[in-house]
C-alpha cells in the first residue's frame, strides 16, 4: 500500500531538516513511538506500537537511511517484527522538503507492506488508518516546528 501526503510547516527548510534528523524529535512526533536508538551513521532501531481497536501491535523496527541530500531529500527503509508473533512490517519512505513562501512544504510517500495481525484488516482499511496516523504526525510535527525555537529541546 502506498501513502502520499504533503503539508506545509511555517519554518524554513534548514530548521525542518534538523528536526527531522533529530531522533528525539521523531520519538515525540511519530504516533505510538516510544524510543529510537542510533546504531551507526545511517541506521537506527525504534519501537513503535500501532493500535487498531483492541489490537496493539508493538514493532521493533530497524531503520536504514539509504539516501540523503540535506536539506531536501531523505529516503529510508524500515522493517520490523512484532516480538515472537508472525506480524511483519516493511516500508520504503521518501521525504522531500521544498521552500515555499510561508515556510517549507514537506511531501512524503511510504510504500508499506504489512502482514500478520494487522494485515487482517485489509489494505483498504490499513491505508485509512495509516493516513490517520500520518495526520497525527503532521499535527505534532507542525506544532513543534512552528514553536519559538528556544522552547524546543
Amino acid at each position: 500500500m502506498r501513502i502520499e501526503q504533503s503539508f506545509t510547516v511555517g519554518a524554513p527548510p534548514d530548521r525542518v531538516w534538523s528536526l527531522i534528523r533529530d531522533p528525539q524529535v521523531m520519538v515525540g512526533c511519530v504516533p505510538g513511538c516510544d524510543g529510537i536508538e542510533q546504531i551507526d551513521e545511517t541506521s537506527y532501531t525504534a519501537q513503535v506500537t500501532v493500535s487498531v481497536g483492541p489490537i496493539k501491535a508493538r514493532f521493533n523496527l530497524v531503520i536504514e537511511i539509504t539516501e540523503e541530500q540535506a536539506p531536501t531529500f531523505i529516503r529510508t527503509e524500515s522493517r520490523g517484527e512484532e516480538g515472537s508473533r508472525a506480524s511483519m512490517v516493511k516500508s520504503v519512505n521518501e521525504m522531500r522538503l521544498a521552500p515555499v513562501d510561508d515556510g517549507t512544504e514537506v511531501s512524503y510517500s511510504a510504500d508499506v507492506e504489512i502482514s500478520g495481525r494487522l494485515g487482517r484488516y485489509g489494505a483498504g482499511m490499513m491505508k485509512k488508518i495509516a493516513t490517520k496516523l500520518a495526520g497525527k504526525f503532521e499535527e505534532s510535527f507542525r506544532t513543534l516546528a512552528e514553536a519559538p525555537e528556544e522552547v524546543v529541546g
Partner: peptide
C-alpha cells in the same frame, strides 16, 4: 464520505 475498498465492495 471516506469509504474503503474492501472485500464487500469498492469505495
Amino acid at each position: 464520505l471516506d469509504p474503503v475498498d474492501d472485500s464487500r465492495g469498492s469505495a
